[in-house]
Amino acid sequence: MQEVRKAAHERMKGFCRVCRECDGRACAGEVPGMGGLGTAASFKGNVEALADYKLRMRTIHDVSAPSTSTSVLGYALSIPVFAAPIGGVSFNMGGQITEEEYILSKVKACDANGIVGCTGDGVPPFISEAGFAALTAVNGNGIPFIKPWEGDEFFEKIEKAAATGCTTFGIDIDAIGLITLAKMGRPVAPRGVERLRALIEQIPGQVLLKGVMTAEDAQAAAEAGAAGIVVSNHGGRVLDHTPGTAHVISDIADAVNGEIAVLVDGGIRTGADVLKMIALGADAVMIGRPFSIATVGGLEEGASKYIQQLTGELTSAMVLTGCESIEDANADIITDVLGQ
Rank of each mutant, 00 (worst) to 15 (best):
C27N: 11
T119Y: 12
D23Y: 07
P32F: 02
A189N: 10
G288W: 05
G185S: 11
G29N: 06
N233R: 05
V116A: 12
L55N: 09
A221S: 14
D332F: 00
A161R: 10
A109L: 12
K13Q: 15
L208N: 01
M184A: 15
T315D: 06
G281V: 06
R5N: 04
V238G: 03
E153A: 07
L178P: 04
G14T: 10
L181T: 04
E194P: 04
L208T: 01
F291C: 05
E101L: 08
F91W: 13
E259Q: 15
F82V: 02
E300R: 12
K147P: 01
L55I: 09
P85T: 08
V285W: 00
I176L: 13
V256N: 01
Q96G: 07
P204S: 11
N330P: 04
R17H: 14
V107K: 08
A215H: 03
G24D: 00
S316Q: 15
Q309H: 08
C323S: 09
A161M: 13
A41M: 13
V123D: 11
V47I: 10
N257W: 02
E10M: 07
A329S: 00
G205A: 05
G258D: 07
I287Y: 01
A134F: 08
L196N: 02
C110F: 06
A182T: 14
Y102T: 13
K108S: 14
T136W: 08
K6F: 08
V63P: 01
A253T: 13
L280N: 03
T214D: 01
N330Y: 04
M34W: 09
D283L: 06
G131V: 09
P204C: 05
L196C: 04
K108A: 15
I229M: 12
A175I: 03
M34D: 11
F82Q: 03
N257A: 15
E99Q: 13
E327Y: 01
T311E: 10
S292E: 02
S90T: 13
L314K: 02
Q2T: 10
E101P: 04
A41D: 06
A222M: 10
G29Y: 10
L196F: 02
I79H: 03
A227D: 03
T270K: 14
T98Y: 05
A175P: 03
E99W: 07
F291N: 05
I173T: 13
G170K: 00
T321L: 01
A161H: 10
E150G: 13
V31P: 05
Q206I: 06
Q308T: 11
T136F: 12
C19M: 10
D111L: 14
L199E: 15
N233W: 02
K183N: 14
I179T: 14
S292L: 08
V63A: 06
I260W: 00
E153R: 13
F15N: 04
R58Y: 08
G36I: 11
P32L: 10
D283N: 11
A220R: 15
E150M: 08
G24I: 03
G151F: 10
I115G: 06
A163N: 11
G339T: 12
T68W: 02
T70L: 05
G142S: 07
S316V: 14
N113S: 10
I86S: 07
I146E: 02
I229Q: 05
T119L: 14
F82N: 02
A246T: 06
G322E: 00
L50G: 07
